[in-house]
Amino acid sequence: MQFFGGSEISPSPPVPTASGNNAHMMYVFNRNGICLLYKEWNRPLHTLNPQQDHKLMFGLLFSLKSLTAKMDPVNADKGNLGVPQLPGQGCSFHSFRTNTYKLSFMETPSGIKIILVTHPKTGDLRESLKYIYSLYVEYVVKNPIYSPGSPIKSELFNTALDQYVRSIS
């Protein structure tokens, strides 16, 4: 898999699925549930204040993961519902869709969660999330003045990310 060891950004980002910007927002969480990055492109509806919104999103993903780990119909030895699991352990999920949005989700082995919310008609974004992760590794993790667990403020990362997300969806 490219995102486990690649030292350079994958040379060809995945092909865009459609034209025009229809990404709504994006979250990056670390394993402790701290929101490292929140970006929004098109979000007319705000029901909560930002802090509560991030908490609710992390809680939703956490609970959905324990739900899918318990529901997994293929694996015979799964623990009780809600048993804590390491990243990559148990059955996870990669997206869900409602009538108004589609949420794509990726968790890396280090517990970084990348969430992209787009238009419901968007196709499979797993490759795009991997590419975003490689951007994160390149511009954030390799930045010597970045301290892990703090919000991402890297200018280079922000512009590269913005450009890429606008191009994919």
């Binding site: 959905l64 899918t68 529901m71 997994d72 119909p73 293929v74 694996n75 059955c91 996870s92 999920f93 990669h94 997206s95 869900f96 869709r97 409602t98 009538n99 108004t100 949005y101």
Partner: peptide, 13 residues
Amino acid sequence: GCSGIELLEADTF
């Protein structure tokens, strides 16, 4: 106008 999750795509189901 969101009416909730319609499809959840997990790794095995």
